[in-house]
C-alpha cells in the first residue's frame, strides 16, 4: 500500500493525527490487520460448512 493509502485508511478510522505522529506504526498496524482475513479464510477451507451455516456461539464453554 502507498503512504497515501495508509493515510486515507487511518483518517477513515479517526487515526489521522496518530498517523501523522507515528506513520510507521500505523503502517505496521494496517499490515497486521490485513493478515487477519486470509489467515481465517485459510482456516475455513478445513471445513465443508459454507459461511452462512457457520454459527457463532457465546464464549463461555
Amino acid at each position: 500500500m502507498t503512504d497515501d493509502d495508509i493515510a486515507r485508511l487511518a483518517d477513515s478510522v479517526g487515526l489521522g493525527e496518530v498517523h501523522a505522529r507515528y506513520p510507521q506504526l500505523i503502517r505496521a498496524a494496517v499490515e497486521r490487520g490485513m493478515t487477519a482475513s486470509p489467515a481465517l479464510d485459510a482456516s475455513r477451507t478445513a471445513t465443508t460448512e459454507p459461511a452462512h451455516v457457520l454459527v457463532v456461539r457465546p464464549p463461555a464453554p
Binding site: 478510522v13 506504526l25 490487520g33 457463532v56
Partner: peptide
C-alpha cells in the same frame, strides 16, 4: 501502541469470522 492500534484495522467481518472459527 503497536499491538493495540492493530485493532483499528480489524474489520467487522474478520471479527465475526474469528468467532465462527472459535465455534468450530
Amino acid at each position: 501502541r503497536r499491538k493495540l492500534l492493530a485493532g483499528a484495522f480489524i474489520r467487522a467481518e474478520e471479527y465475526i469470522k474469528a468467532l465462527q472459527a472459535r465455534t468450530q
